[in-house]
Design a protein around this nucleic acid. Structure first.
Lengths: 160, 160
DNA sequence: TCAAATTCATAAGCTAGCTTATTATATCAT
DNA sequence: ATGATATAATAAGCTAGCTTATGAATTTGA
């Protein structure tokens, strides 16, 4: 019964929540001329400059091509830049530009506001547990995708 | 500190989780020739036949035009149909077609599988609390969007 | 009673996901 | 060394969100 009613709702509720949160965050971020998706990329670059695009895509659970487009926009605005790698000419590494600084300050404040709004009525301990459970789900699904991908392999297999 | 680290992560983690779950659910649903988004619509119609498109869009926290496209696909496949309303010729009401029945059975099983995969390592009581908290967040954000929309109104206002 | 406002569905065109394919460069196994 | 394989970024074209605009039908109100 308990599991049954979770069955009924978890998958689709997650989608509905994300849809609402996305709409709200996008609308607020638009005040600063940035979208939520671009903001997420910028925040990761802030936290660790010098990442390769491929590394960042993996961090963000996103396909490289999706990231490429977002980086294009961030570069157009002059907030970050691509720099070639010294030893591997295929690689772009990502760095903040000075123009991003004032924006980053405003976005930090906005993030606190949005989080506080979303979590109203949920105490900090519960909020923490919620976040931990979301991370657990993320790991579970990541593993499931990995396993499914290896299910019908070709040459790596050695049972033949 | 506790609130701080939640700040750092909630918004973007929610997006990353949803991205992974979406990818996984889409890949699994593809076995039955349907996408996750179409499946969500079909599931709501199953639960309450005879809804107007506009009512369904509101239920799903989705814009009417987004829903229109998904319904187009479901009708193309012959799983649901639009029927005109007797007393209001603007309205379409949505009904299942017989061809949907076998599919709905398979999808119910798939939903249980996906949910079980996602929730591995989380006990049923925690899963329940998680779902309740997601609903709370949904309400909080819905309210915030409502309030923001009414922030700079024109004629409805009566303080002048 | 009929003009204005509202509502329902849809259209056009944007963002941000995806898959599959391409180009350039690196690496590995003969 | 060099041919095969793998990796980094990008391109083309799809799905599914969004906003803003439009057409048709209904409701409201002077």
């Amino acid at each position: 019964m308990a599991r049954g009613s979770v069955d009924m709702n978890l998958l689709f509720t997650l989608g509905e929540v994300q849809r609402l949160v996305r709409a709200y965050a996008d609308k607020q971020a638009a005040r600063y001329g940035i979208t939520r998706a671009q903001w997420a990329v910028l925040a990761k670059v802030e936290r660790s400059e010098g990442l390769k695009q491929s590394e960042l895509a993996e961090l963000m659970e996103m396909q490289p091509i999706t990231l490429t487009r977002l980086i294009d926009k961030l570069c157009d605005h002059g907030w970050i830049e691509r720099r070639g790698d010294d030893t591997d000419r295929r690689v772009n590494r990502l760095y903040l530009r000075k123009a991003a600084r004032p924006l980053l300050g405003k976005l930090a404040g906005l993030r606190s506001e949005l989080t506080a709004t979303a979590l109203e009525g949920i105490n900090p301990a519960d909020a923490h547990r919620l976040l931990a459970q979301l991370e657990t789900i993320k790991e579970n699904v990541r593993n499931a995708i990995q396993n499914a991908a290896g299910e019908a392999p070709r040459k790596e297999q050695h049972y033949g």
